[in-house]
Each structure stands twice: as structure tokens, then as C-alpha cells.
Nucleic acid binder design. Structure first.
Lengths: 203, 203
DNA sequence: ATTTTTGTCAACCAAATGGTTAGACCATAT
DNA sequence: ATATGGTCTAACCATTTGGTTGACAAAAAT
């Protein structure tokens, strides 16, 4: 249970974010969201009609937060290597502030793949075109080895996002405590970029 | 709804696997599992007492299937580069047979990190020790650049597992249909290994 | 042959859950 | 003052859901 915010509608959305992102659509209870927002359960329906609509509001809001992160690689103007270093270095800060967000988006997209169709209409929806040109250009200029932009993108994203999504599994396998694992993640800020650049660099 | 198997207990477990792995603990219904197993709902409780216990049986069974995959990198005797190529090449076949399994294990471990403690007791639980020695040895022998075994392991796992877990998101971002995405995954069978080896190889 | 055990089901139950309703409160406009 | 419209709550409702019970038949044990 939390304190009521002055703006009820926003208070509900924030409470719903917390609950939905941590427990997913199926695992979340309207009552818990109401408690966390410090209001009566009826208010949820008053402002958002149904659990489904409240959930969609949270999902969209989450995706709008994640999209700029993806655009750092896909649509930033900086040079390829800088971009990789920059993204890798900054993504961890983002995850610390929103620990459940990337996983939330991925999970709910798995349970409802059509959501992405609705998202495509949004402005600033990340697309790969610009990145593709940049990669092809870097190959032509003899900067990097030939590689499909799609594969490079998947690699960058995988190396950055997965260690946070699978943290409990990886902690178990590597046999380190949370604190120690966090140190590994800190090191990755630079190591992952080096790993990628080492792999594709031609020099 | 499905046909009843001759062994009821196993039939229930198989039905439960399908439902739990696709919808998670919170999203699954006992009735749906019973229907899929072609039996009365009471049978679920007769054989497994409660939803929680049935779920744990499914989880353990899933983990026991995933563990040998992880041991392919961590505890196989082959040479490092072969091992990376081999794992990367074979993991996709595993995912095709068990599409929901890796994500299921990771998700439920996120919701209940203590599960991994219970798993550690199992024999053949994958640990990193042997792999660590192998990596350190390869570094000493001047085969690969210095890298922490933990980081290399995380990288290998990330590059292989994440593209399947985040398939709907990545399909949306890359703007390809399922079929085309599957082709990308096919190519990764060799490309990911090359990507990794390129990065760490000293020659 | 008869008792006991095991497997199975239809019917049932209590709690949880998403959603609704009727009315109270309160500020602002008339 | 009084009406109006937005905000909010307590109580309620119907359905879903995990779990239980009692009867009953097939199979094993005696």
C-alpha cells in the first residue's frame, strides 16, 4: 500500500506499471494495483474501464520508454563503433532504473505477438533501415568484416539485454551472489562493446 | 482436448508441461490441463496434490532437459572452438523441439529465484568450473585473447538463447515475417560461432 | 469369494477475482 | 441556495478457480 498521488489517473498508471511489470498480466490483481495506488478498486474501472485496457496503457507506456533505447543503436547519428560503445555503456543505467521493463515487454509480446503491430504505428517506432545503411557503408569502406546488419543488431541486443533477463539463471550457473553478479554487469559496460568490435573490426 | 494416455500420471505431466510452458504458472488453469490430458480435474490433485506441486514437477522436468544443453558448453571435453561451434549449431534444433522451454525456465526463475537453489542439488547441475579452466588454459596457450570465462559464457548463452526468447520483438524491429526470421536463425547456426571466435581468437 | 486398495468421475464448495451500482462528497456554475 | 458534473467509496454480483467429497468400479490382495 502506498500514498495516494494528487493525480489519481496517473497514480493508477504508476501503480499498475509496478504490479504488471513485476507479475505480468495474468499474475497481477486489480486489488493489488488499487492498494498500491491508495484508492478504491472501482477507480481502476472508472479511469481505465477494464484490466485489459489498463494493461494496454501500461504496455504502451513501457514500450515508449524502451523505444528510445533501441533507437540509440538504430537511429543515432554517431559513428558505428562509438554507437556500440555508447549503447553498451548506457543500457545498464537504464535497466537499473527500470529493472522489470525489458523483460515485461518481451514477455507480453510473446503472449500477444500482435501487440507489436499496434506499436508500429507510433512515431519513433524503431526500425532497422538507417542502421542497415550504416553497416553496409562501414563494410564498403573496409572498416568492418562483412556481416548482415540484422545479425549484428541481434547480437548487440542479445549481449546487452539477455544477462538481465536471465539473471537468476546465470547467477545460479556461474555461482555468484547478486552483488558479485552486479559487478560482472558493471564490467560488461565496456567489455561487451570490445567483444563486438573485436569481432567485426577489420584492422 | 486430447486423447488419454495409458499412463495417467505421465499424461498429466505432459499436458501440464504444454500448458505451463506456454502460459506460465499464473496464466495456466487446472481445468485446461485436465482437458488436454483427457481426464477429470480431480485426477490432477489425486496424482500431484496441488497446482504448486504439479508446477514444480513440470519445472524440474524442464530444467532437467535444459541442463544437458548447458553442459555442452560447460562440461564437454571437446576443444574450445569446436565446442562453441557445436553448441551454437545444435542449440537451434533443441529449441525447435522445445520452443517454450528456455523462456519458461528463465521466467519462472525470475518469479521465484529460489528455485535454482533446489536445482543445485540435482546431479548434472551445470557449473562453470571446468569451462573456466579450459578458458584460462586457452589464454595461457596463446590461443585466445584474455577474457573472463564468466563473461565469455554469458556471451555465448546470450547470443544463442535471446533471439528465440525475444522473437516477436526482434521480428517487429527487423520487420520480417516469422518465416524470414527463421531463416535468420538458421544462418546463426554458423554465424554466431564465427562471431564469437572472431572476437576472441588471437591468430 | 470377499475384502481392500487404487483409479476415476460428477457434483460440490469456498475463496478469489474482475467488474457493477447506488449513493456520498465536493467544487463550480447558475 | 441550488443544480450540475466530476470524483470517490462501500457493498454487491456473477464467474472463475483451486481444491474436496462421496460414490463407484476395476483390480489386487486375502
Amino acid at each position: 500500500m502506498k500514498v495516494k498521488e494528487e493525480n489519481t489517473e496517473l497514480g493508477i498508471l504508476n501503480a499498475a506499471k509496478e504490479v504488471f511489470q513485476e507479475k505480468g498480466m495474468a499474475g497481477s490483481r486489480m486489488q493489488e494495483i488499487a492498494d498500491k495506488a491508495g484508492i478504491n478498486k472501482s477507480m481502476l474501472h472508472y479511469y481505465y474501464r477494464s484490466k485489459q485496457l489498463l494493461f494496454e496503457a501500461v504496455f504502451k507506456s513501457a514500450f515508449r520508454l524502451l523505444a528510445p533505447q533501441l533507437n540509440r543503436i538504430l537511429n543515432d547519428d554517431s559513428e558505428l563503433f562509438d554507437k556500440i560503445r555508447n549503447f553498451t555503456n548506457n543500457y545498464i543505467s537504464f535497466v537499473i532504473v527500470h529493472p522489470y521493463l525489458p523483460n515485461f515487454v518481451i514477455q507480453e509480446l510473446n503472449k500477444n505477438p500482435d501487440f507489436i503491430v499496434g506499436m508500429r504505428a507510433e512515431k519513433d517506432f524503431p526500425t532497422i533501415e538507417k542502421f542497415k545503411i550504416q553497416v553496409e557503408d562501414a563494410i564498403t569502406r573496409g572498416l568492418i568484416k562483412p556481416i548482415e546488419a540484422e545479425q549484428l543488431f541481434i547480437n548487440i541486443i542479445s549481449l546487452n539485454i539477455f544477462p538481465f533477463i536471465a539473471a537468476p539463471l546465470l547467477q545460479g550457473l556461474i555461482q555468484v551472489e547478486e552483488k558479485e553478479y552486479f559487478k560482472l554487469m558493471e564490467k560488461r559496460k565496456t567489455e561487451v562493446a570490445d567483444f563486438i568490435i573485436n569481432s567485426i573490426s577489420l584492422k
